[in-house]
Amino acid sequence: MISIKNLEYGYSSSKHVFDNLNLELPDGHIYGLLGKNGIGKTTLLSILAGALFAKGEYDIDGIDPRKRNNDLMEQVRLDVDLDINPTMGINFATKPQTLANILADLYPNFDKAFLQKAIERLEVPTGKRLYKMSMGEQRKALAALSLACNTRYLFMDEPTNGMDITSRTEFKKLVAEQYAMPCDEQATVDKTIVISTHQVDDLEGLIDAVIILGKENVLLCATLEEIGKKLKFGFATPEDTVLYSESGANGEECVMRNDSGMEMPVNTRLLFSAVTRKPKVILPLFNNKI
C-alpha cells in the first residue's frame, strides 16, 4: 500500500508543486494519474519511486522510498518518458535484449517469457540499438522491459506517448495480463500500477481507479466503481441533475448525478474536465479516499 501524508515538494522556493498532499493507494489497482501539464504527475511518480525527496511522511508497504532500500527498490520500477527526459535513456547504446539481461540481474522477478511475448506483440525492433530507435519504438521497448521487470509497484509516465494505434491496444492488453498475475508464486499481495497520461482514451477499459491532480494537491482519488455509482456521463434528459456540461461533436455532453444506485460506465475525459473545471460541484460527492 502507498501512503502519503502532508507531502510538500517544490523545485524552488517560488515553484511549489505539492503542498500538504495526502493520498492512500491500496494495492491491487491500476491507477490512472491525470492532471494538466506541469501539475506534477512525473514529480509525484519520481517521489514515490525514491528518485526525488519530498518533505512529509510517505511510504510504500511501510518503507520510506527516500531510504532507497534494496528490498523495496527490487519491487518498484520507475518508467519515465524518454521524450521528456532525453538525458535518461537516449544514450542507451544497447539493444533491448542486452538491457533486459542487465535488468534481469537487478529485478528478482524479471519475467523473460513475458518480455519475449511483449516484444513480439508490440513489434519492438530487437535488432536496433535503443538510441537509434524512433520515439515510439523506444517507448515500446522500454514499456516491454518495465512490464517484464514484474515488480509489485510500477510507475509509468506517459507510456503510450508516440506509440502507434495497434501498439496502444496491445500495450493495454499486456498491462492487464501482467498486472492481473502476482509477481511470483509466493506472492500473496496484489500488484499496483500507476500510469500517468494525457491520452485518457488509452486508459479506457484498463484502469480501475483514477487520481486527478490539481494545483499542489489531489483533487480526486476514487475507483471507477465508486465514480460510476455516483456519476453518469452522456446526454442529459430533463429529469437528470446536470453537474457539468461541454459541447461535443454530437451535442452537449454532460456529467450528471447518478441516483439510480447502479454502476454506470465512466467517461474519463469528461470526468477530468468536470473535476478540474467544476471541483466545487463534483468533489463534495467523494470523500477523496478509495
Binding site: 525514491g50 528518485a51 532500500n69 518498484v76 520507475l78 538525458t87
Partner: peptide, 18 residues
C-alpha cells in the same frame, strides 16, 4: 549530478553501498 540520470539510476535495485 545530472539530475534525471542520477535519480533514475538511484531508483534501481541495489543498496547505496553496491
Amino acid at each position: 549530478l545530472r539530475p534525471t540520470q542520477t535519480r533514475v539510476y538511484l531508483t534501481l535495485p541495489g543498496s547505496p553501498l553496491e
